[in-house]
Design a protein around this nucleic acid. Sequence first.
DNA 1: ATGACTGCAAAGGGTTTGCATTGAA
DNA 2: TTCAATGCAAACCCTTTGCAGTCAT
Lengths: 133, 133
Amino acid sequence: MTITRNTVQREIILQTVLGMDNHPSADEVYAKLRPENPSISRATVYRNLELLARQGKILHIRTPRGADCFDFNINDHHHLRCEVCRRVFDIDVSDIPKIDYDKIDSEGYLINGYNISFYGICPKCQENERSNI
Amino acid sequence: MTITRNTVQREIILQTVLGMDNHPSADEVYAKLRPENPSISRATVYRNLELLARQGKILHIRTPRGADCFDFNINDHHHLRCEVCRRVFDIDVSDIPKIDYDKIDSEGYLINGYNISFYGICPKCQENERSNI
DNA sequence: ATGACTGCAAAGGGTTTGCATTGAA
DNA sequence: TTCAATGCAAACCCTTTGCAGTCAT
């Protein structure tokens, strides 16, 4: 691991994510801490979220379509992006077989890992669709 | 399905994708057809690739990090995005269990589908890494 | 004193959109 | 005749980067 220094900004960003339970995007983290910390820049938020994820302190969730999100829950679990509100949620899909293709070699391709991401509609947006039509 | 009209642009875009075997991004399709068809606009390429994918004539591949790609091979298969050159490749990872969570309901979440995308390093980039160090 | 880190603003990549016009049906 | 589709440019979202200055070590 490269040398890092402890900055107040980094700690504030970490604590902000730990206090949010809704898979915030970098911009949502920025918006959340901005009122009390107006001098922290958006670039610093992006840079530190990435660094904290590399350190394993938070989870960096990347899914197609929509901003990357971050999660205080670093345990292995699955996510769904709502196709209506574009937000990310934990979903409980038990017995998803764990694919053991980590670091294997497939016809010359070095596979370092994989992402599974679900898409669908969250409960709130389903409800809105029912009442708005 | 909504009403569509057959335009020459759409046919050119379709034929261009069918003639490319390298999972082109929308911009790569645009670049490919531009020399012979300089009047077709980038917006038209984006709009038609999406429409053709909705019609099931091509495959729209969405992975985290990097542009969406399109594929003439509409059979169900898996993709890997090279972390070095950012390109998308077919990979042969047999016996990936098919997850049967299509259209099921999990704690109020309507699951419409899922993406699995692998990441790693393609053969050419592995070779470059070996020789460049 | 060193260089990791910051804030700022600008640029970047990928994609979508508003609008007037065109052309397939 | 109609309205789906086009071309254009501008806007959009998300993210990264260059740079000069700052601050943890």
